[in-house]
Design a protein around this nucleic acid. Structure first.
Lengths: 144, 144
DNA sequence: CCTAGATGCTCTAGCCACTAGAGGATCAAG
DNA sequence: CTTGATCCTCTAGTGGCTAGAGCATCTAGG
């Protein structure tokens, strides 16, 4: 049986994060010792590693909740998991596209000659120039 | 003189966001009417568009604060603004690299033959398989 | 056996950049 | 004069953790 600290090291997830995952229901409530400390078995390591891997791939907690449910019910069809993965892939691809556009504009911004006659800063100038606007008004938020 | 709603439309920033920017000090406190309504001039449109453009490029609020200060003080050297832009570019590039790796793994996940003998789901399988781990333990957070 | 430091517990608050909603005042058009 | 749009302030919520307070308990060395 593992303490939360051992589990943390075994799965590569910080202790407070494990408690947080328990709180939001990604991990089941573990058995406690007489002095109220959490104890875990091998299954917890696997489950936590699964969660970590999914988080690394950018799946949201809600998506992970579904993936875990599918993982727990082995006779379920693959479709849902596949759909979630495809959705995540589309999301990642959209972010890449967006970031590539940002990269291009940032490069353009930095590529200007740094010896113009006016003492003006190209970076500041570009930001202030409404006509160089990259995105429309609906997507004013940056790609988080 | 513009109401906050007009400014919102002119600059492409939502009304509550304008109030929020004022609260955190990105926008100066505007003159109020007798009935306490905010009124803005042309300068506010420019400043707000500047902020929006910078946000679209992914600059943090803190970075924008610096950029605005530089924009307000035209005789300052460009170096700081350039450094901020380069930092932002590096950030964007790092995110792209990371997302490309995620994309590759998601594609691999979805590329498996969907007719294996066992009824197992490749997506679930890959997530549970510790050996296919993409990232090390230090970077457990997804690229926001 | 004692003690010191590591580890555990719960609870609250903070991060970022907004967004949503309550509950009320005021404005502009018909 | 009424109706609906817009405005005001204030609080709380989002996601996915992270940090800290203040306390209890465990473990290893002496």
């Amino acid at each position: 049986m593992l303490s939360i600290g051992k589990l943390s090291k075994a799965a590569g997830v910080k202790v407070p994060t494990i408690r947080f995952y328990e709180q939001i229901g990604l991990l089941p409530e573990p058995v406690r010792t007489a002095s109220d400390r959490r104890t875990y078995g091998e299954a917890a390591i696997r489950r936590l590693a699964f969660i970590r891997h999914a988080r690394e791939l950018g799946f949201s907690v809600e998506a992970i909740r579904s993936l875990l449910a599918l993982s727990d019910a082995p006779e379920q069809p693959c479709e849902t998991a596949d759909a979630l993965a495809r959705e995540q892939l589309a999301d990642v691809e959209a972010k890449i596209t967006r970031l590539e556009a940002l990269r291009a504009e940032l490069r353009r911004m930095l590529d200007g000659d740094h010896q113009g006659p006016a003492g003006h800063c190209r970076v500041i100038e570009v930001l202030g120039d409404h006509s160089l606007c990259l995105a429309d008004h609906r997507s004013a938020a940056p790609p988080k």
